[in-house]
């Protein structure tokens, strides 16, 4: 943890109070051959340090688009967006976040350790520190001992864990996750959800998590942002009363079911005009 001080200063500082991510009146309109498409409109949202915020909604509701705006992979056409107190693009250049995509997207020609090491190589970490960090994050996602395997030798769940390790390898305190477990089966997904919560507790990162599974959103989040399509917008923001420590059984509790019900109602309301 030698370079942490310098890196933190660069990424905006971890002692800063106030929201890590702040959007006001945020909108994005894509120009397509069939005319403009409003992917996102009027998004007002402030996310504080250490929060776990889920974005849920049907496809086309702009949840992924919002995440990509935060990551500066898309440029908003309206409104303001700040990440770590700077513009999204400045935050990207300061390597303020780790991004986990829907597909693991590991390089087939690199070992698991080599894949996890990729961002460290690009960011110019010294060799000894790279090895140490790789060892640490592989331990964190319970992949110790798989460092020398190639991606195709691992199951889909393990590949996705490796891609999470890759996003954790450098000291970004924001983790953006775009349906990371969408392609996995229910059992693996439960296990990874549990591990992700533990990881969040241990690291204290701010996590933005896109999903279209209601139980997943309720189980993981401190806040759930319900979105609806055409145009993509926020219809409800639900604060979760669940404690930070959440065993899988909590999904049978009354509070859990109540929140899930409210999310479902929110999703239905957003869809009402279409039916």
């Amino acid at each position: 943890m030698r370079d942490d001080g310098a890196l933190m200063a660069e990424t905006g500082g971890s002692d800063r109070t106030g929201p890590v991510i702040e959007a006001s009146g945020l909108g994005l309109t894509f120009q397509t051959a069939d005319g403009p498409v409003r992917a996102l409109t009027g998004v007002d949202l402030a996310i504080g340090r250490g929060e776990f915020v889920s974005f849920i909604g049907p496809s086309g509701c702009g949840k992924t688009t919002f995440l990509r705006c935060v990551a500066a992979l898309e440029e908003p056409t309206e409104g303001r967006l700040s990440v770590n107190g700077m513009s999204a693009d400045a935050a990207r250049r300061a390597r303020a976040y780790g991004y986990v995509f829907q597909a693991a997207g590991l390089y087939p020609w690199r070992t698991i350790a080599g894949n996890v090491q990729l961002p460290l190589e690009i960011m110019g970490y010294p060799k000894a520190e790279r090895a140490e960090r790789v060892r640490k994050v592989l331990e964190l996602v319970e992949l110790s001992g798989f460092g020398n395997k190639f991606p195709w030798q691992l199951s889909g769940g393990m590949q996705q864990r490796a891609s999470i390790a890759r996003a954790l390898a450098f000291d970004a305190d924001i983790l953006l996750m775009d349906e990371p477990f969408g392609a996995l089966d229910e059992i693996v997904r439960d296990r990874l959800n549990e591990e992700l919560l533990k990881l969040w507790n241990r690291t204290g990162k701010t996590i933005l998590f896109v999903t279209h599974s209601i139980p997943e959103a309720v189980y993981l989040s401190t806040r759930i942002v319900v979105m609806s399509p055409r145009p993509g917008r926020i219809t409800d923001v639900i604060e979760s009363p669940l404690p930070r420590e959440r065993p899988l059984e909590i999904r049978d509790s009354r509070e859990f079911l109540e929140i899930a019900h409210r999310v479902r109602e929110g999703l239905r309301a957003g869809h009402a005009y279409e039916v």
């Binding site: 990551a71 992979l73 990207r92 250049r93 390597r95 976040y97 780790g98 991004y99 995509f101 829907q102 597909a103 997207g105 390089y107 020609w109 990729l118 961002p119 190589e121 690009i122 960011m123």
Partner: peptide
Amino acid sequence: PDAIQLDLLRTYNAGRGATFWKLRLPASM
């Protein structure tokens, strides 16, 4: 290389050189 792999390098703020040596060249073998 597909869009996800290129986006990934963008999130690391990787330059053209790194994109070429670490992604494009090995992918082209």
